[in-house]
Amino acid sequence: MTDQFPENHAHEKTRSVTVERELPHPPEKVWRALTTPHFIEDWLMKNDLSPEVGHAFQMSGDWGAVDCTVLEAEPPERLSYSWNAFGLESTVTWELVPIPSGTLLKMEQRGFKPGQGQFYAGARDSWPAHLGNLAAFLDRMD
């Protein structure tokens, strides 16, 4: 007799949300906007990020908080951190690619499991707006 409800769900596929945006700013400037707490607060939410591998931090909004840990920090090319909240265990990765007009910014949030459609839809709908906020912030930033 086979177990109809296996405990190991490792074979289940996870989904990811990817957003790309060309920004007319150099990667170093985009990196500062992605890694400086008071800048991040302007375009995303309150936080105590420090771009050092192993640094644990929180992002918080009026709806609650996200627990994060820096997984990769390679200025000004790549930043990755865990993004865990309300049962969602995911990873957010930023890649900054220099292009003639500035920076191609790629953001991927991966790790949405089956049954986490609400989290997936929320991320899919909100990250483009957050990147829009980031672009507007970069235009104002010195």
Rank of each mutant, 00 (worst) to 15 (best):
P51W: 01
M1G: 13
S50V: 08
L23S: 05
P75W: 14
M107R: 08
F5M: 09
P51N: 03
K46V: 10
L105T: 03
E20V: 05
E72M: 02
L96A: 03
P98N: 10
D62E: 12
Y81H: 15
R110Y: 07
L96T: 06
W127Q: 00
D67L: 07
Y81F: 15
G117M: 04
V92R: 06
E72L: 07
A123D: 03
V97T: 15
V92A: 14
L131P: 02
A10N: 04
M141Q: 07
G61H: 13
S90F: 11
W63V: 03
K13E: 15
A65P: 04
E20G: 01
P114M: 00
Q58M: 13
H9E: 09
L71Y: 07
P27W: 07
F86N: 14
L138P: 01
R110T: 14
E74C: 11
L134N: 05
V70M: 11
N84V: 14
S16P: 05
E108L: 02
E89R: 09
V97I: 14
W43V: 04
E95N: 15
L104I: 05
P114G: 03
R21V: 06
G132H: 00
W127C: 00
G87M: 10
E77K: 12
Q58V: 06
T18K: 14
H11A: 14
W43Y: 10
L79R: 11
G102Q: 08
L88E: 12
A56W: 00
D125C: 05
T93N: 09
V30E: 09
H9C: 06
H11T: 10
R32C: 01
M59E: 07
P37V: 05
D42P: 01
F137H: 09
H55A: 06
P51Y: 06
E7R: 06
H55F: 13
L138T: 03
S50L: 13
D142A: 05
L23M: 11
D62I: 08
K29V: 09
R78L: 15
L44H: 06
C68Q: 01
Q58Y: 08
Q4E: 10
R21S: 06
Y120C: 01
E20R: 07
L49C: 08
A73Q: 13
P100F: 01
L23G: 01
E7V: 09
V92K: 11
Q116I: 06
P27Q: 07
W63R: 05
S50W: 04
W94P: 05
E28S: 13
G54P: 03
S126C: 02
I40Y: 00
S90E: 13
S90V: 12
H11P: 00
P37G: 03
D48A: 08
A65V: 06
F5G: 08
W127Y: 05
K29D: 09
T91L: 15
R21G: 06
W43Q: 07
G54A: 04
L44K: 07
F39R: 12
P24L: 14
T35S: 07
A85L: 07
R140E: 12
W94K: 04
E22T: 04
G61Y: 05
E28I: 00
L44I: 04
M141L: 12
S90M: 07
V70D: 14
P100H: 09
E41R: 08
F112H: 12
L131Q: 05
P27Y: 04
R124N: 12
P26E: 15
Q58R: 10
V19D: 12
N84W: 15
A33I: 09
F112S: 01
K13W: 00
P75C: 14
Q118V: 01
G64Y: 02
G61P: 02
W83G: 14
L134E: 02
